[in-house]
Design a protein around this nucleic acid. Structure first.
Ligand SMILES: [Mn+2]
Ligand SMILES: [Mn+2]
Ligand SMILES: [Zn+2]
Ligand SMILES: [Zn+2]
Lengths: 146, 146
DNA sequence: GCCTTATCTACAATCAGTGTTGAAGAACAA
DNA sequence: TTGTTCTTCAACACTGATTGTAGATAAGGC
């Protein structure tokens, strides 16, 4: 995702207006590594702008996704997660217990489908997801099993 | 997943009763490669047993998942999909357009997380998903763009 | 300043899935 | 066969994320 300033340019160039709410959401997303849900973005945005509505957050997130500035991920945690890190593809670590999502920063081999194995699918993207327990939830489940 | 007969044994061994509805669901799942949703299982089951309820289908699918005989997959298609093929892990092909899910039958390298890159997660499983267009949807979207 | 678009509030609707109830039916052990 | 226990069914309400609607207000951009 680009900087808030660049995003404002981009929105204008696409005939969208640069409102205070949208800029607030730009700022909230900048550098957010938590893969927030729409609700999480809303909560963070409310700290800067008390009256921003959840509806507006959904709209702006979809605008950003349509422009390819963020990606929306359905990782099975019950809510769509948004990822400002779209520049290089990366695997995700997902906590089975609390739904935490983190980037896995490590080089992974490009997954190539052998010829004839794609069953006629026109494949556009590949995703790798590791599921497990995050450090915090590891702690709490340890206590349960003792 | 085991055969319907073996599943009946397994259910009895676990203190569950072997009802006609459950056996019907066992048969429906046997050899199903489509990764059906609960609703799809229900529709197929209704062909054999008209009065079987969707609730019972959900219950039995969860029973089977609890016993490890099928796996439940949330692949972002809007519905949980069930996979009787649990014996060897495999990637999935998912159609962005119609939600079709197919096994990718090809050997993939075991995904190993480099030391120190797991951010403290206790990783239990890895999933690979390829997204794209299935042959049928490729056809229909071709017609749209001409 | 004018036109257009965005936002807000408030509410209803969707949709997959879960929970509840009580009554009826079936499985299974004895 | 009998009795206990589990399962199913129907019918319904409910959840929770997300989308849709409406009219009124506000603000962006030229
Ligand atoms: Mn990410
Ligand atoms: Mn599969
Ligand atoms: Zn966790
Ligand atoms: Zn398709």
């Amino acid at each position: 995702m680009r900087t808030p300033g660049e995003l404002s340019e981009l929105f204008r160039a696409n005939g969208r207006k640069v409102t205070a709410q949208r800029q607030c959401i730009f700022r909230v997303l900048e550098g957010d590594m938590t893969h927030p849900s729409a609700e999480a973005v809303h909560i963070a945005a409310t700290r800067e702008m008390e009256t921003i509505s959840l509806k507006t957050v959904y709209q702006t997130l979809h605008d950003l996704a349509d422009l390819g500035e963020i990606s929306s991920l359905d990782l099975g945690t019950g809510m769509i997660r948004f990822d400002p890190n779209v520049d290089d593809p990366h695997p995700h670590l997902v906590c089975r217990h609390c739904g935490k999502v983190r980037d896995l920063v490590a080089a992974f081999p490009d997954l190539q489908i052998p010829d004839g194995a794609d069953l006629g699918f026109e494949v556009g993207s590949a995703e790798i997801v590791f599921r497990g327990l995050c450090p915090e939830c590891r702690q709490s489940t340890l206590q349960l099993s003792t």
